[in-house]
Simulated scan of single mutants.
Amino acid sequence: MNKALPLAALIIALGLILFLYQRLRTAEASLEIANRRFADCEQVNFQLQNQLTQATRGPVPDSLRVVSGE
């Protein structure tokens, strides 16, 4: 009985360590995917801003004109 309690505590601790390690790896993988998606969104945003800037240098297309309410 003297050796059973520390052994049980050790097994529980190792199980908890493995569980938390698995959760950490999952969270890191999710974070990496989110970072890639964010970088893709930044790139698309930059491209759209460039298109808008180029479009406003020339004649303003009808789709970008501001229509007054009068």
Rank of each mutant, 00 (worst) to 15 (best):
V67R: 11
Q22I: 06
R25V: 09
K3A: 10
G69M: 13
Q51Y: 14
P59H: 12
V67H: 10
L52Q: 02
P6T: 00
A13K: 10
S63N: 12
Q22G: 12
R57C: 02
G58L: 11
V44Q: 03
L24F: 05
A4K: 14
A39D: 06
R65T: 09
Q51V: 09
T26A: 15
Q51M: 09
E42D: 03
P59G: 15
K3M: 08
Q49T: 01
L52E: 03
A4R: 11
T56C: 07
S68P: 08
L64S: 01
A39G: 00
G15H: 06
V44L: 03
S68E: 14
I33M: 00
E42L: 04
L18G: 15
L5N: 14
Q54Y: 04
N35E: 13
G69A: 13
A55Y: 01
T26G: 10
M1P: 10
L5T: 14
L5R: 10
L24S: 02
L16A: 09
L18S: 15
L24E: 07
I11R: 07
I17P: 11
R25Y: 05
G15E: 07
L18E: 10
A8P: 06
N35K: 03
F38N: 08
D40K: 01
I11K: 01
F19G: 14
Q49C: 03
I12K: 15
R57G: 13
N45C: 06
F19M: 12
R57W: 04
Q54C: 04
L7P: 01
M1Q: 05
Q43S: 02
